[in-house]
């Protein structure tokens, strides 16, 4: 509750975060870091998913051509 309220209360610039107490800066790293890791891995997932779909459709297309 503290972190979201702080984010809403401040103008959320890098300078304002640096002015926070150390433990709140830590909490910021925890929240942003965890969300960030999930987001990046989500992008990796989408990359694999799209590559698979493209490969599947290309193989299907090849099969259709040979038939």
């Amino acid at each position: 509750m503290i972190l979201p309220s702080m984010i809403l209360a401040s103008n959320f610039s890098a300078d304002s975060i640096r002015a926070w107490p150390l433990w709140q800066q830590g909490l910021f790293v925890v929240v942003v870091g965890l969300v960030g890791v999930f987001l990046v891995l989500l992008l990796f997932f989408l990359t694999i998913f799209i590559m698979q779909k493209i490969t599947e459709s290309m193989e299907k297309h090849k099969k259709d051509e040979t038939v």
Binding site: G33, F38, L42, F45
Partner: peptide
């Protein structure tokens, strides 16, 4: 099994808990 990638994110929980 691309959906397994999310476990690679969840298991980083300890990094951030310990950091704090």
């Amino acid at each position: 099994n691309p959906y397994m990638i999310f476990f690679g994110a969840a298991a980083q929980f300890g990094i951030f808990v310990t950091f704090f």
